[in-house]
């Protein structure tokens, strides 16, 4: 052990250390790989932006500023038809509520068909699961577009869109909850001589219901978020008001509506969290 200083490390010293611990100085291959990854990523981003016509920004700046300015200077606020706005928000909430509730009811049945322990018949279980995959694979907004074409503009299409896509996801989550239950309790009920329906009612439901309710509440929360944009394709709710006023170049009103929606979503989040903490927390224990 000798005292050393950085200044005292000459080329000879470096060479001798390098001879004994070559890897500590980094291998050429390692360095190349590292650089190649960085260069590749940056080149990809630049290349793809170029392909997506990034130069458009250069011509857009003027419009962007006008748009932003229009959003923040609120004019003629007395003519904004507030009743429509708040009806739209209420409609969005109603769509989310109905859609999630119906989806929960559907998932209550479908979930048992998709769970391994309650549906021992493999082919049917797989068929149900694949159908759920398709329901989830198609985005809610696409369902909205499809249902608007089927039943016309309005909240009915929105409710159906939420119902269909939430059924896909909730059924899967429900079936997972059912698969994770404590089997001993079910056997206990079965041992009393109960039939299959009664086994589900007394053996399964008490265990899974708290989980179901908590997940449905969570989905109500997330459906309120997604329901706000369903209107963009005509499926009812506040989104219809947003796009209608956007198309009429009433940007200040759009900004106002979006602000209201954000506050509303914030309140729902908070409420739902409180409810889950207070009640589901207690029931689950």
């Amino acid at each position: 052990m000798t005292a050393a200083t950085l200044a005292g490390i000459g080329p000879d010293e470096i060479a001798s250390v390098r001879r004994m611990h070559p890897e500590a100085f980094g291998t050429l291959r390692g360095k190349l790989v590292q650089w190649a990854v960085w260069v590749g990523v940056i080149a990809y981003v630049i290349g793809s932006l170029w392909y997506f016509d990034v130069w458009k920004f250069a011509y857009a700046s003027d419009r962007v500023w006008r748009l932003i300015a229009a959003m923040f200077t609120w004019k003629d606020m007395e003519t904004w038809r507030y009743a429509d706005i708040y009806t739209g928000i209420a409609q969005t909430l109603a769509m989310a509520f109905l859609g999630t509730m119906l989806a929960s009811l559907a998932a209550l049945f479908i979930g048992f068909f998709a769970a391994r322990n309650t549906m021992p018949f493999g082919p049917l279980r797989h068929l149900v699961r694949r159908m759920l995959d398709v329901l989830r694979g198609v985005d809610q907004l696409i369902w909205g577009l499809v249902f608007v074409r089927a039943v016309g503009l309005g909240p009915l299409a929105g409710v159906l869109a939420i119902f269909v896509s939430d059924t896909g996801t909730l059924s899967k989550l429900y079936s997972e909850a059912i698969e994770n239950i404590d089997r001993k309790q079910v056997e206990g009920v079965r041992a009393t001589g109960a039939g299959p329906i009664k086994v589900v009612r007394y053996g399964y439901l008490p265990q899974v219901l708290p989980v179901f309710i908590s997940q449905s509440l969570y989905f109500f929360e997330s459906s309120t978020r997604s329901a706000t944009i369903l209107g963009l394709v005509g499926a009812g709710g506040i989104g219809m008001i947003i796009i209608e006023r956007f198309r009429a170049n009433l940007f200040d009103q759009v900004a106002f509506v979006v602000l209201n929606v954000l506050v509303c979503i914030f309140v729902i989040d908070w409420l739902s969290r409180k409810v889950r903490e207070r009640f589901i927390g207690e029931t689950a224990h």
Partner: peptide, 22 residues
């Protein structure tokens, strides 16, 4: 820098830890 790396290895060496460098 290379001299910093050499210095670091030397420091590890003083404490008998150079073999664990990587």
């Amino acid at each position: 820098t290379a001299s910093e790396r050499a210095f670091a290895i030397r420091a590890l060496d003083r404490l008998g830890m150079a073999h664990t460098a990587l």
